[in-house]
Computed example of a mutant assay.
Amino acid sequence: MTGGTGAADDPGCSGCAGCDATTPWAELAAEMRRIKLATELSYGKLAQRTHYSRSSWERFLNQKQLPTRVAVEEFAAAAGTDPGPLLRRLERSLAHETAARAAAAAAHEGVRGGEPGLVPAVPAPRQESDPLGLGRPLGLLAAGALVGGGLVTVLNRAARGRKGL
């Protein structure tokens, strides 16, 4: 979930897509950007002072990805500020995102069950048959190995045929 999710008519919503208010996640990102600006920290300096890359900090501070608790703690340490207020905002952000996902899932279940409901913001993942849990990449690798093995066999037979073996 990016930015904000939920519905404007949700009484527990503190600001989502369609709302005029801001989400807890937006508030966290804005506060982290304010601190970054006040302490004159660039993304590069944050990367040097933490275990996160420049691109990670860009995603966190521009609301493309919700930061982890460790990232918020390292940010506060790098900026020389108290992590408490940022961590409280992070907890509110996590609670808000969890509630938004639950609401979307409930709306989706209502639609699937034939009851009137909202169309889910994110479609349900497609269920594929994978009894061993190996995933598609392994299947593609196996197919490639079979094709490659067949190609080697054909080339070997062609080479033997030219040598008269």
Rank of each mutant, 00 (worst) to 15 (best):
Y43M: 09
E58D: 15
H108D: 13
A7L: 03
H108R: 15
A104Y: 06
T68M: 14
D10I: 03
R126I: 12
D20P: 05
Q127A: 15
L138S: 02
L94Y: 13
A78C: 04
V152L: 14
E97W: 10
L94F: 12
G4K: 00
M32N: 11
R49L: 14
G3C: 01
L37Y: 10
E73V: 14
N62C: 13
A121N: 00
A106Q: 04
L90T: 15
L94R: 15
P125F: 01
R162T: 03
A38I: 12
G4C: 02
K163M: 08
E73M: 07
M1A: 01
R54A: 14
R49F: 09
A142D: 06
G113N: 11
G114R: 08
W25V: 06
T5L: 05
G164V: 06
L37G: 12
P83C: 02
A121M: 04
E91L: 14
A29E: 06
P116I: 02
P125V: 09
R54L: 11
G139I: 02
H96E: 13
A30D: 13
P137A: 04
A29Q: 07
E31N: 06
L66S: 04
A30R: 13
S55N: 11
T22G: 05
L87V: 15
A100E: 01
A102L: 12
T68Y: 08
R54E: 14
V111D: 07
E115K: 07
Y43R: 05
R59A: 14
G161Y: 02
A103R: 04
D130F: 04
A145Y: 09
T50V: 09
R101V: 07
E27K: 08
A142R: 05
S56M: 13
A124D: 02
G135F: 03
P67T: 11
A124Q: 01
T39R: 15
G161I: 01
L37C: 13
T81C: 05
L94V: 15
A105K: 09
L134F: 03
A21M: 11
T22P: 04
A38Y: 13
